[in-house]
Write a protein that binds this DNA or RNA. Structure first.
Lengths: 349, 349
DNA sequence: CTGAAAGCGCTTACAG
DNA sequence: CTGAAAGCGCTTACAG
């Protein structure tokens, strides 16, 4: 009983049919396989009459070229992968969309994957994408060791890291100036009279979190302020942890009078805490937030351009694929301080 | 001179190498191709010693199975496509992430594409995904005619529409109760004393916009209020158009005292207009918004669950692929009125 | 202008 | 337990 499963697929009423191939089209049009291929790909050297016959067969059969077979033969898949943390985060949506637009301009599709900030999952995803033979990979790293990608890069997979540098390998990276942005933001608070300033950030193993903390320390040191251990708190960004961190800094005999929030998730939670708090407390957040201007007071932020990060990275990826790119580079995009009120509040004690 | 391009690829210093294949691994391990395949796929029937030799060859050569070749032979690609409007919109990020999670649970990758609300681009994207032979397609339609998908569906591509129904074909659809949600929201405003209520929505060809307008009209009719033409405005959701629409409704001798905003983008712009407006105006928006509770007044919304829409659709897609699904169905998810202040303001005139 | 043969890198269906 | 042959649906490199 040969090949029953296949026959079952063809049963009328069965959901899954089999698709016509170029061979079917060729048979129906009474031409050779290569002629069909020429018509499908718009290659020259087919008489109008032959072309018409082939086209009719294509339409009658509902033929659509199987790009996965094509890819196998051609080498390039015209698809790229994007490994990010969480597509549901408002920072990554625009970034992903920007990567998609560049991919589209180069005729490539984009496969997205969320690592959920889990290094193992990042690796699993990135390697699955390589197994699909994506032409290139844009990675927002969760882990800090990317040696697992070395064989892939050697084999020709273009690779660009975004938002955070690669760990233990030399690769292109496009990121915002987290250090400088945080230093500016904290200096801004100091300029408005604050000295006891808190910093709440993401897990210290995340590069941006570490850099922003470094910027905070630099600004404090520039102003000759020595940082109390109680003023800094790094860890997961879930609301509970951040809320506790904020409440601790705001209590005690010498509470902070201002807070620098290390990213959009931290900022949102801190805003909620401060909204319910008795005294006014100044706040500057890293990352801009929708409706930030409509809060009371308006939210002062250190803004970075997520879409520009994505676009820059994707463009670099395709330049790698063009072969016009040489040594790995680090591209740092500037941040922008947007003052709206919360960062200009004076110290309340 | 045979195959020079290929040799160029192998040149030392060239970025693009060629990857080892199972054949290379077999040669190095001194075994047959099928034995390598067994080891790579964890199939039984290989002696520990043979397995070890194969594994050593795999590691030495840096072999990674080419899934696109595998896919060609197996039929299923273990990938699904998601065509949505814009990944940068906060409504679609969580939806996409939810689809991805379900895909992941089924061992599939997700290819995202943004239609930018352009029916042609939607079709181009959906068909490109079919050419890649995705196993299934989740589509948030931009257009209103999906007959172009009929051959694909017949050929076995599982298809589920989300947020808006398919046009001119019979297909699964998962959506929120736009009509009921809008009716509830408008009835809520009426319950707080409003009679001159404006409606600002998306383009009328978009199903959700039309349904929400219908809900608005139903609520007005239920209350015995006849709707003035000047009170409703449908069109593109760019800030300029929405701003003008709001300002017109709010001017003249009998301005509206409340506005129902048809989606998140409209709501955001209306909030900005009202923030700069002289009189208090009540507002209910369709779709929840981050920080809505921290505005003054808090924003009252008709909330829908984007992630649940995505999850429900994706689960249905995989049930189609399992073959456990029969006739196309329409699944409508309820909305939820969240009162926070802006919808409870009394009429100011 | 047209097409037959070989091959992309795997899996399938055998046979030993 | 192991492997040679055929084939998935295309493109490549030819030859006529």
């Amino acid at each position: 009983m040969p090949d029953t499963s296949r026959r079952a697929d063809r049963l009328p009423g069965s959901r899954y049919g089999t698709r016509p191939t170029m061979k079917d089209v060729a048979a129906r049009a009474g031409v050779g396989l290569k002629t069909v291929s020429r018509v499908v790909n718009g290659e020259p050297g087919v008489t109008p009459d032959t072309e018409r016959r082939v086209q009719e067969a294509i339409d009658a059969l509902g033929f659509r070229r199987n790009d996965s077979a094509r890819v196998l033969r051609k080498g390039r898949t015209a698809s790229i992968g994007l490994v990010l943390e969480d597509l549901a985060d408002p920072f990554y949506g625009p970034l992903s969309r920007a990567v998609e637009e560049v991919a589209r301009a180069h005729g490539a599709l984009l496969i997205n994957g969320s690592s959920a900030e889990d290094p193992e999952r990042e690796q699993e995803l990135a390697l699955a994408l390589c197994a699909r033979r994506v032409d290139g990979l844009v990675v927002i790293p969760a882990g800090d060791d990317h040696r697992y990608l070395e064989p892939e890069i050697r084999a020709g997979v273009a690779t660009v890291f975004v938002d955070r540098p690669a760990g233990k390998i030399d690769a292109d990276v496009v990121l915002s100036d987290s250090y400088g942005g945080a230093r500016d933001g904290v200096a801004h608070l100091i300029g408005h009279g604050h000295r006891r300033i808190g910093f709440i950030g993401d897990m210290p193993r995340i590069h941006t979190a570490a850099e922003r903390l470094r910027g905070y320390r630099a600004a404090m040191e520039d102003a000759g302020i020595s940082v109390e251990p109680a003023w800094t708190s790094l860890g997961v960004t879930d609301p509970e942890r951040v809320r506790r961190a904020a409440e601790e800094m705001l209590s005690g005999p010498a509470p902070v009078t201002a807070i620098f929030a290390g990213n959009n998730r931290v900022t949102v939670t801190v805003i909620r805490v401060l909204a319910a708090f008795s005294r006014p407390v100044a706040l500057v957040g890293f990352d801009d937030i929708e409706l930030a201007d409509l809060l009371h007071p308006g939210l002062t932020v250190v803004a970075q351009d997520a879409a520009l990060l994505g676009r820059t990275a994707a463009e670099r990826l395709f330049r790698q694929l063009d072969g016009t790119l040489l040594a790995p580079e680090r591209i740092e995009l500037p941040t922008r301080l947007v003052t709206r009120g919360s960062g200009e509040l004076p110290p309340s004690q």
